[in-house]
Computed example of a mutant assay.
Amino acid sequence: MPLRQFCCCALLCLAFASQAEDVIELYMPNAPPLTFASLKGGHGMVGDVTLAALARAGLLSELRYEPWARAQRKVANGRDQLIIPLSRTPEREPLYTWIAPIMPLERAFFSLDEPVQSFAEARQRYRRIGVGLGTAQVEILRSQGFSEQQIITHTLGENPAHLLERGRIDAWFTGVPEALYIWPQHSTRRLQMSPVLASTHLYLACSKECDAQLVQKLRAAVQSVHDEGISKRLIELYLPQPLDAAP
């Protein structure tokens, strides 16, 4: 058994406090390394922590993989459905029941030329900025005054690294772990990173119509997984190599 698979299995087993009896739908995108649609041994930083909390709460999950924007609409309009990893933004605030934060996510601009130092500089320099469709990055750029023509959306699962390398976008605005994880798999060119310019917590959220006992149970389970250090160890298994460590 690979080391990561063994560690994930061992840590998830630590999370069980009772045998899982109930089954609940959990929507998540393929957004490595935060969540993986299919990975032998784990489902990513947020995925594994969430599954550990579900196990602690005595719940089984039925994993659902749909386009991210569609998944958000389904959960928002459904009942007792879970979704990860969801940033708690002003636009989304009234649409969901916010159960608990799983981890913070820092965001930055990534490019192949001299990195920008601010949103203002990025607005002036970049004509085309790649962002994931339906992600908080879109909301962040709009709130910072970027035009719709500057925001080039791609669906989660598509490869923005190729778009950047081929010059189809000038920069990529995304979570730092995602860029550091994806880029080395597709290019040997030097990736440049701006300072961190935005940060939000990634939440486990539920439908707006969500059973109060379910929310309470999961909120307590997430907190216990954090308090016991299980979430920290699961997240660290997926941490990508920083840019300064690249050869």
Rank of each mutant, 00 (worst) to 15 (best):
Q81E: 14
I140N: 05
T89L: 13
P2V: 01
A10I: 07
A122F: 12
P247E: 11
G134K: 13
G130H: 01
R125M: 03
Q216H: 14
A179Q: 06
L86F: 12
C8D: 00
A136I: 04
R70G: 01
L191S: 02
M1I: 09
C13F: 09
E139A: 11
Q19W: 08
P240Q: 12
V215L: 15
S147N: 08
D170R: 06
R107P: 00
Y126F: 15
R92D: 07
R56I: 01
A122E: 00
L234F: 04
V75P: 02
C8K: 02
E165D: 15
K74L: 07
A52I: 08
L59V: 13
Q223M: 10
K40Q: 12
I102Q: 07
L105K: 05
L164P: 02
R190C: 12
L59P: 01
G167W: 12
L82W: 02
E209C: 04
R4V: 08
E91G: 09
S199N: 04
G47M: 12
L237K: 14
L214R: 04
P32Y: 03
Q223V: 07
E114M: 07
F109G: 00
A57V: 07
A212Y: 02
G44T: 06
G132Y: 00
L243V: 14
D48E: 06
E209H: 13
K208A: 04
S61Y: 09
V215Q: 15
L26Q: 02
M1Y: 07
Q223R: 12
G41S: 05
K208W: 10
N159E: 10
V196S: 06
Q192K: 03
E21D: 10
E139I: 06
A246T: 06
P29N: 05
T174D: 14
R166E: 15
P115G: 03
P240W: 08
Y181I: 04
A245F: 13
L191E: 07
A171Y: 02
A71H: 04
P94A: 08
L202P: 13
A76L: 08
Y181T: 05
P242A: 10
I230Y: 01
G145I: 02
H226Y: 01
L59G: 00
E209S: 05
T35W: 05
T50I: 08
Q117T: 05
P2W: 01
I230E: 01
Q216L: 11
Y203M: 08
W183C: 12
A20T: 05
W183S: 10
Y27S: 05
Y126I: 09
R123C: 03
G157S: 10
D211K: 04
W172M: 12
F110V: 13
P195I: 12
Q213L: 01
C206Q: 11
I129D: 11
L12D: 00
R233M: 11
C8S: 04
V138H: 12
Q72N: 15
K217Y: 09
A69E: 10
D170K: 09
L180Q: 12
P94H: 08
A120S: 11
G134Y: 05
A37V: 06
A108L: 00
G78P: 10
I102L: 13
D227T: 08
Q117P: 00
M28A: 11
H201L: 15
T35Q: 00
G58L: 06
E228R: 01
E139W: 11
L39M: 11
D227G: 06
R125L: 07
L112R: 09
I140V: 03
K74S: 04
L204F: 06
D244Q: 08
Q19E: 14
P33H: 10
N77D: 15
N159V: 14
S199L: 02
